[in-house]
Design a protein around this nucleic acid. Structure first.
Lengths: 175, 175
DNA sequence: TCAAAGATTCAGAAATTACTGAAATAATTG
DNA sequence: CAATTATTTCAGTAATTTCTGAATCTTTGA
């Protein structure tokens, strides 16, 4: 095993551990790391061998990654099997993950908070005053977050960086 | 059980499920939710009863939440037992969580990426060109993220909102 | 200084999540 | 259209995470 392989392996293992940061499991994160660091698409067999995991596991993890939208199938002409590759632009990758996590986690939370507000407002007398205040604050926070997310999502990473750079007086952020 | 209690319960259960969003487990998230929605501090016994969980579980979850910095012990005079409460300011809460996750997840990742760059640069000849590019992009992304985080962290939530509101032309963001 | 109340710890149990591998299914080709 | 190769599925198992509850430790106040 070459030194280069060792560096790659270290990266892949660590990325796997940090999968929780992205809300995905270890295998998914490792596959993602391996595809990300590979100059060309890899087959399911390649992934099995490199990561020492079962065929089934590879198949399931790929399905999930494709559902997230950060891995895609590639047909290579002359080849019978499928190959897989991943988004190499980190900003695009980040945007995809942000969008998915919003959809899966933030949106349902906001839904519950809104419903709670409705329910609290239907209580008789002045019941639930304190609770209403608390939920409202949370809801406000999340809704503001979504507004910021949506505005940022319309812009290109470059323009966002430029603006932030000026705004925060941080050198090297762009602009 | 009153309607108010039902609303509270729904909120607590959902918050528990979404714990992953914050990187904490279900019990921790439920305890946090219960303390957040309670007008006054609660004892370990209160938590056990309300959430139907064991004494040990409460104790461990509280220890973690206190380590995170989002729950604190409260001494109530005349009372022998300890009471617990949580930060009620959502923005402060969010900042605490962001700081902790950065420390636990982002910082170690950056460390690995930096080390990988060093290792790659020590390779003989032109080995690892492609890998270097990939790792560099990731590192860049994370370092930019940290810069943004640090600049935002110096400011008050209000001023951040004001500035973002102007920049993004979003109404109702502040300013 | 000791009994009572409260809090913590942690070994084992329960619950959840992830993984394997073989069988089923699908796709490709001569 | 069979034979071959590739992929998916999923029941069973393994690994990991979370939780319980009894034992232990700590604090209080009489």
């Amino acid at each position: 095993m070459s030194e280069l392989d060792r560096v790659k392996e270290r990266f892949i293992l660590h990325w796997g551990e940090m999968g929780s940061l992205w809300g995905i499991n270890r295998t998914m994160a490792q596959i993602h790391a391996l595809l990300y660091i590979s100059p060309r698409p890899l087959s399911a067999n390649d992934l099995m061998e490199e990561l020492q995991i079962s065929r089934g596991n590879v198949s399931m993890a790929l399905r999930e990654l494709i559902a997230w939208g950060i891995v895609s199938r590639v047909h290579i002409k002359g080849e019978r099997k499928e190959f897989y590759t991943t988004e190499k632009d980190v900003w695009k990758m980040f945007r995809i993950i942000a969008r998915e996590r919003k959809r899966r986690e933030v949106d349902p939370t906001i839904e519950i908070l809104r419903q709670s507000m409705v329910d609290l407002n239907n209580l008789p007398d002045n019941e639930g005053q304190y609770e209403r205040e608390r939920i409202e604050q949370l809801l406000n926070f999340f809704e503001t977050g979504i507004k910021i997310y949506e505005s940022l999502d319309e812009k290109t990473p470059d323009s966002v960086l430029k603006l932030l750079g000026k705004l925060l007086q941080v050198k090297g952020l762009g602009g």
